[in-house]
Structures are given as structure tokens and as C-alpha cells.
């Protein structure tokens, strides 16, 4: 089948504004949008720029807007989006070139919530594992799935309005440690998220939950963090 791919192009050295360029590509309906982009870059225009790495929905490099929705190009098949495909860079982050955006603001917010294990408890006697029951592990299972692709944060209207908002991805990664029974920095993380640009900027639009390629219940996770701040219980 012949697929029409409309791409929002931008070269900061030549263009004042981004503009659309259309390509025709021969494709199978089981091809991924990433395959189409590779075909265009390899056969029609080598200057087309986009990020990709694993190509299997794990690294989160190729997040972009496909037909108006944030998706991973490597997980989106042609049969899912039809033969008229519009591809744009993620919204809310500065454009660098074509489909590449500057992820620095995103990772700055991520770092702010201390997304790593912290424990001031003594090392277990056997010097090995800090044990946890299956129920305790289940409490934060969903939020361990995040691949930091930024689909959620860049689909959030609050983040579009004000990029100082920490955004869904940072909250999801804070949730992963806040509800971990072995972690002891719970209060510090909740205090950070209780700030003006923390969880209160979430308006429960649910865009993040719909955009997440890992199907994490993001709005629910944010609500759980809000509840933990209000009740002082995790």
C-alpha cells in the first residue's frame, strides 16, 4: 500500500518556523511508523532527523506525535493509524531539529524527585537483600514500568501551559519509591511534590494515562501521591 507521511520539519539553521513536508512511501500494513521514517531517511531525504535506539518499545527514544497522539514510532503499526500519517515532535519541549526535542527540562524534573533508592536503615544481617513481601512489591509494581519516553508529560495540558510543573513522568517515578516499603526518603519526596509546581498542578485530564505506551495508570498514581501528602500515610 502507498502511505502518505506528513512530517513537521524544522532546521534551526535555515527555517524561521517549522513547516510540513509530505512523503509517499510504499509500506505493508504491519510496518511500524519507525520503519517508514527509516525508509524516508534512507531513500528520500537523508537530512530527516529523529531519535531511535532499541526499536522494541523499551528504550523510549522514539516518542513523537503520530496523528495527534503521543506514541512510540516503534510500537505503532501502519494498520493502527491508516495510510495518511502525520508525524510531529512532542509538544511542550524545545525543538532541536525535525522530530528531535530537547529533553533537558524533562530530565531536570525527573532528577528533582530523587528517582533512586534511599535507605538509612542498617544493611541486613546477611549483608544481602532487603526483603519485601509480594504485597509490598505489588504496591508500586505499575510505576516500575516507566521507560522515560516523555509521552505522558508532553501530553499534559498543565505542562504545556507551564513547563515548571514537574509533570506526570517525574511523579510516576517518585511514586515508584514513595510506596516502596524499603525506602526511607518518603517524606522528602512527598514534601517536594507538595510544592506549588508539584502534584497540585494536575487537573486529572487523563491525557497522560491515554498516552502512556506502557499502559501505566498515571492519573491514579498521581492521585495516590496527592492522597499520601494529605493523609500522611503510604
Amino acid at each position: 500500500m502507498l502511505v502518505t507521511v506528513k512530517i513537521l520539519r524544522y532546521n534551526p539553521e535555515k527555517d524561521a518556523q517549522p513547516s510540513y513536508q509530505t512523503f509517499q512511501v510504499e509500506a505493508e500494513e504491519t510496518d511500524r511508523v519507525l520503519d517508514l521514517l527509516e525508509k524516508i531517511k534512507g531513500e528520500q531525504d537523508g537530512s530527516l532527523s529523529f531519535r531511535r535506539s532499541c526499536g522494541h518499545g523499551i528504550c523510549g527514544s522514539d516518542a513523537m506525535r503520530i496523528n495527534g497522539m503521543n506514541r512510540l514510532a516503534c510500537k505503532t503499526l501502519v494498520r493502527d493509524v491508516g495510510d495518511q500519517i502525520t508525524v510531529e515532535p512532542l509538544l511542550g519541549l524545545p525543538k532541536i531539529k525535525d522530530l528531535i526535542v530537547d529533553m533537558k527540562p524533562f530530565f531536570d524534573h525527573y532528577r528533582r524527585v530523587m528517582p533512586y533508592f534511599i535507605s538509612d536503615l542498617p544493611v541486613p544481617e546477611d549483608g544481602r537483600e532487603r526483603l519485601q513481601s509480594p504485597e509490598e512489591r505489588l504496591r508500586f509494581d505499575d510505576t516500575t514500568k516507566c521507560i522515560l519516553c516523555a509521552c505522558c508529560t508532553t501530553s499534559c495540558p498543565s505542562f504545556w501551559a507551564n513547563d515548571q510543573y514537574y509533570g506526570p513522568a517525574a511523579i510516576v517515578n517518585a511514586h515508584r519509591f514513595i510506596f516502596d516499603s524499603r525506602d526511607t526518603a518518603t517524606a522528602e519526596r512527598l514534601q517536594i511534590l507538595a510544592e506549588e509546581m508539584g502534584v497540585w498542578r494536575c487537573r486529572t485530564a487523563f491525557n497522560c494515562t491515554e498516552a502512556c505506551p506502557r499502559e501505566i495508570q498515571i492519573t491514579k498514581a498521581i492521585a495516590e501521591v496527592k492522597q499520601a501528602i494529605l493523609s500522611g500515610k503510604v
Binding site: S133, E135, L190, Q191, G198, A228, I229, G232, K233, V234
Partner: peptide, 20 residues
């Protein structure tokens, strides 16, 4: 929920405003 932990959060203006 079993095994629930208590944490001490200093209420700030945003928390009070949200409750209000």
C-alpha cells in the same frame, strides 16, 4: 491496608489551599 506507614509532611500553603 496492611503495612501502611506514616510519614510526617509539613503542610504548606498549597496543601492548605487544596484542602480548602
Amino acid at each position: 491496608m496492611s503495612g501502611q506507614r506514616s510519614v510526617k509532611i509539613k503542610p504548606n500553603y498549597e496543601v492548605i489551599a487544596w484542602k480548602w
